[in-house]
């Protein structure tokens, strides 16, 4: 990739941000604001029942007396749980964004303007994918960092009032560098893991005559139901392998924890809540070694070629 290509790509990604400021910029900031408001309200209301903050201070002192390991689990675990809210909403936003990304300009015919610029169709598709895999995660990550820092600052104030050392009780156990770097890595690997789903949405978006998101859901759902019905009729049993369920499962079993414990068959995977669950770079990187990851990427590549093919013919006829 030369310089010009990179410049074009970054300009096109900026275009996406200009087109969807609400979903990309204001949604993560809004979640931050809601979480912080909720925390502040809880503290204010709690303060009314908790005269002189005796109860709160007691809890903070208890936390300060916990062994280091335990403190780390509690503080970083709490921070991670909060970021999980961001991840879930981010995924929804990305799915809807991708489904509309190659459809909206076809609908309002502004595609003719975009096609009048010296930008290839492959580059256009790449910019949508880059926005979903890099831009949106980066903006959500920024909002998460902001939320974490403000929460820790609030905790610092309460810690000082309670007479505990805020650095030793909150900031060090939060293990921010490790927490944040695992999160960033996780977001990138997650994007690779979900690439076939992303590519499927782009593919549907590139040709769907209307309602691309519904078409993107209806096709695998229809196939899954048809396959179920067929095997049920012919074999009196349920299929062991189902296209629709494979997609659903991949969506549910993201790299990022909190979504890791959905298992079809009715039982939750028994996962012990420990640090390794969300604080381990190796667990995240382990996904890169899985066969499913590479099969998914190969499928994604085919679908992306399909999307470019349809994009090229979008103004035809």
């Amino acid at each position: 990739m030369n310089n010009r290509t990179l410049n074009t790509l970054s300009t096109l990604v900026r275009r996406e941000l200009w087109e969807s400021p609400v979903a990309f910029k204001w949604a993560p900031l809004g979640i931050s604001a809601l979480i912080l408001l909720f925390v502040v309200f809880s503290l204010i209301i709690g303060g009314r029942f908790d005269a002189e903050m005796a109860f709160t201070s007691d809890m903070l002192r208890q936390l300060a007396e916990q062994p280091t390991e335990q403190r780390r689990l509690i503080v970083s675990g709490a921070l991670f749980s909060i970021s999980a809210i961001f991840f879930q909403i981010m995924l929804l936003i990305i799915l809807f964004y991708l489904a509309g990304s190659l459809f909206d300009d076809r609908k309002d015919r502004s595609i003719l303007f975009w096609k009048s610029l010296p930008v290839s169709d492959g580059m256009t598709v790449a910019s949508k994918l880059a926005s979903a895999c890099l831009l949106v995660p980066a903006l959500f990550f920024g909002a998460i960092v902001l939320t974490h820092v403000v929460l820790l600052l609030i905790a610092t104030v309460y810690g000082l009032l309670a007479g505990v050392n805020p650095i030793a009780t909150f900031w060090l156990p939060a293990s921010l560098p490790r927490l944040w770097s695992v999160m960033l890595l996780g977001m990138l690997v997650q994007a690779l893991w979900l690439m076939p789903i992303y590519a499927w949405l782009l593919f549907c978006s590139s040709w769907a005559p209307r309602l691309p998101i519904l078409i993107a859901i209806a096709i695998p759902a229809g196939l899954a139901i048809a396959q179920h019905a067929w095997t049920l009729i012919t074999n009196f049993s349920l299929p062991g392998f189902n296209f629709g369920l494979i997609m659903l499962k991949r969506l549910g079993s993201g790299v990022l924890p909190m979504s890791a414990n959905i298992e079809f068959g009715g039982n939750l995977q028994s996962i012990e809540f420990n640090e390794e669950l969300f604080m381990n770079h190796a667990t995240v990187l382990g996904y890169l070694g899985r066969l499913e990851m590479w099969i998914g990427l190969a499928v994604a590549l085919l679908l992306l070629f399909g999307a470019v093919w349809f994009r090229r013919r979008a103004t035809d006829g």
Binding site: E19, R109, S110, F113, W114, S116, P118, S120, D121
Partner: peptide, 23 residues
């Protein structure tokens, strides 16, 4: 070679089709 061609060619289609969301 549409992308290379568009460096030398510009066009206006029959109706104004600038993206409505943009400033």
């Amino acid at each position: 070679q549409r992308d290379r061609l568009m460096e030398q060619v510009c066009f206006i289609a029959d109706v104004a089709v600038l993206p409505r969301w943009a400033r």
